[in-house]
Design a protein around this nucleic acid. Structure first.
Length: 565
RNA sequence: UCGCGGGUAGUUCAAUUGGCAGAACACCGGACUUUGAAUCCGGGGGUUGCAGGUUCGAUCCCUGCCCCGCGAACCA
């Protein structure tokens, strides 16, 4: 491999990678780099998680380190194995492979418990008998100090005895908690004697009935990182205030000096999109979408059904980089990465989504009275010569796009209109002669003549046409169901200004039609994405390949022209 | 009210850490075109939140202010 260092300057690193690079350079952690992706198994992954996933796995890749998958399963009330499985499937689809076996915070429950006793022994934790509301009130407020619990100064022996009784099931759910003994005056609320253990008689999806006390996030997370040997514990901004507690817990445990360091970054926000678990759940529960894997959902499963390739997701997250600034990325940027990917890889096919009859009046009829059929050679992908060509049947009875004909067009309309000649892609030049109307004046059919000398789509005399249109032979058409999607939310920032995002839903976010397509569309495999020429990229449904989801439309200059009017 | 984090084109990020503020997407124009796509070329866009200070020189360092976000679960 030859490289010329002066030519391409190294791309600037994001602030997290910069930090990692500095640690590697200084020999911290012995030059080791280890990250982790720590989902709670209580919901489906969405595009925001993808950012975190590609960040954590990407860092490990870039620095020759490892990245673990660890389920933070400390709250059995909301968690379930089904999510454990779903999350692993999604990760696989995203194209990342966790280092080593899958880990669970619940694997460390025994160690966590022992450390809690150690804390008690050191006089740094105590059992509190007060209820949730009282503890919350005593926590105080911003700018006001908290009040110490009357149980704060229990003896080590009593604390140990009570804590063991908690574990043994001597108390009712919620009756007692274990609290860290830190500082009720701290500016940082998370240092005001946070709860470390709570009593919950709920079976855990992995440990079953073995425990009736469960550690909180703050008591489990940092230690799990440390147990696994994490060096860089990357999380989102809302955990910033927890970092002091993360460090405090680790500080008390006589761990090796190279304990993990938490770094926070801004989570992903997208325009016209909601990523809050609560709202996503409501969309599903209230039936506004078909499910978590509905093609309009920003979940990994939804994007997958929609036809967003994992490679585009990754290119997108690499591009937007990572920072501490709260930001909202324009969804169009994501779409642009999706288009770029499919433009290179998707086969082109012809399908008519809003069909209108086009009849060629001078098309030859065979001796037996049936219409003549000609098989046209059509390029599969102009961006990829190796994709070859296919044969598409053509005859005098066609479907064209309703938008592609106007009896009385506005200026700059290049498509079919009475008296104008256009090209039918890879077939012939045709000239519209007449629009057939129904009783209400709607165009129901267009009559046209074709020029037999323009076979394949070029005129021997060199004359040009302004427009090329897609078409489908009526006798050969296959019917497919096509879902075209609009954004789920109309406003750029749904839920801003305290509005309920659900009030901002576009009720017509899915438009479904029966499209007419060339025969080859019947052979598209489930999950494959093809370009419907001039319309956009469409993904064959994962379960039913006769159903297509519009992944994203093509750039549409004509739409821009119309918008300007 | 207190603490923490943040503020650079419309948007997301850069700016070799004090040396002519750039890129991508979006937008506009042109070329090319058997997809009004793609591709290629060009263009508009900025009081670097504001005001002072240090300096030959400040997006960068200092001071004050403003605005935005997060934080008072036995959620994560």
């Amino acid at each position: 491999m030859s490289d010329s260092p002066d030519e391409t300057p190294a791309p600037s690193l994001d602030f997290v990678r910069e930090k990692v690079a500095a640690d590697v350079a200084s020999g911290r952690y012995g030059g080791r780099v280890q990250t982790r992706f720590p989902p709670e198994p209580n919901g489906f992954l969405h595009v925001g998680h993808a950012k975190s996933i590609y960040l954590n796995f990407g860092i490990a890749e870039d620095f020759g380190g490892s990245c673990f998958l660890r389920f933070d399963d400390t709250n059995p009330e909301t968690e379930d194995v089904s999510y454990v499985d779903a999350i692993q499937q999604d990760l696989e689809w995203l194209g990342v492979a966790p280092s080593g076996p899958v880990r669970y915070a619940s694997d460390y429950f025994e160690q966590l418990y022992d450390w809690a006793e150690l804390l008690i022994t050191k006089g740094l934790a105590y059992v509190d008998d007060q209820d949730k509301e009282t503890i919350s009130e005593q926590r105080g407020g911003f700018g006001q100090p908290g009040v110490e619990s009357p149980h704060r100064d229990r003896s080590v022996e009593e604390n140990l005895r009570l804590f063991r009784q908690m574990r043994d099931g001597a108390f009712d759910d919620g009756a007692r908690v274990l609290r860290a003994r830190i500082d009720m005056q701290a500016d940082n609320m998370w240092l005001r004697d946070p709860v470390l253990y709570r009593i919950r008689r709920v079976p855990h999806h992995r440990t079953g009935d073995a425990w009736c006390i469960y550690p909180t996030y703050d008591w489990a997370h940092g230690q799990s990182d440390a147990i696994e040997g994490t060096t860089h514990s990357v999380c989102t901004l809302e955990f910033t205030d927890h970092r002091a507690l993360y460090d405090w817990c680790l500080d008390q445990l006589d761990l090796p000096s190279d304990r993990p360091e938490q770094t926070e970054f801004a989570r992903l926000n997208l325009t016209h999109t909601v990523l809050s678990k609560r709202t996503l759940r409501l969309l599903v529960e209230q039936g506004h979408v078909d499910g978590w894997d509905d093609a309009r959902m920003p979940t990994v499963r939804g994007l997958r059904r929609r036809g967003y390739p994992a490679a585009a997701l990754r290119a997108f997250t690499d591009h937007i980089s990572v920072a501490k600034t709260n930001s909202v990325v324009d969804i169009e940027l994501l779409e642009s990465f999706v288009r770029t990917h499919h433009n290179r890889h998707a086969l082109r096919r012809m399908a008519v989504v809003e069909p209108l009859k086009l009849t060629i009046t001078n098309w030859p009829v065979g001796a037996d009275g049936t219409a003549h059929v000609e098989w046209m050679d059509v390029v599969n992908n102009p961006e990829d010569e190796t994709a070859g060509t296919r044969s598409v049947p053509f005859c005098g009875e066609l479907w064209i796009e309703r938008d592609d004909f106007m009896a009385d067009p506005p200026p700059k309309y290049f498509r079919l209109t009475p008296g104008r000649e256009v090209r039918l892609r890879s077939a012939y030049f045709v000239t519209a002669t007449e629009a057939v109307l129904d009783d209400e004046g709607n165009v129901v059919e267009v009559l046209a003549t074709y020029d037999p000398t323009t076979q394949g789509g070029t005129a021997p005399d060199g004359r040009k046409v302004k427009s090329t249109m897609h078409w489908v032979s009526r006798p050969h058409a296959v019917d497919v169901t096509v879902h075209r999607y609009e954004r789920l939310f109309r406003s750029k920032h749904p839920g801003a200004d305290g509005n309920d995002p659900l009030d901002d839903r576009d009720p017509n976010s899915r438009i479904t039609t029966l499209a007419r397509a060339e025969p080859a569309l019947g052979e598209v495999a489930a999950g494959d994405v093809v370009q419907f020429e001039r319309l956009g990229y469409f993904a064959a449904d994962l379960d039913d390949p006769a159903v297509f989801h519009r992944t994203v439309g093509l750039r549409d200059e004509w739409a821009n022209i119309q918008k300007q009017r």
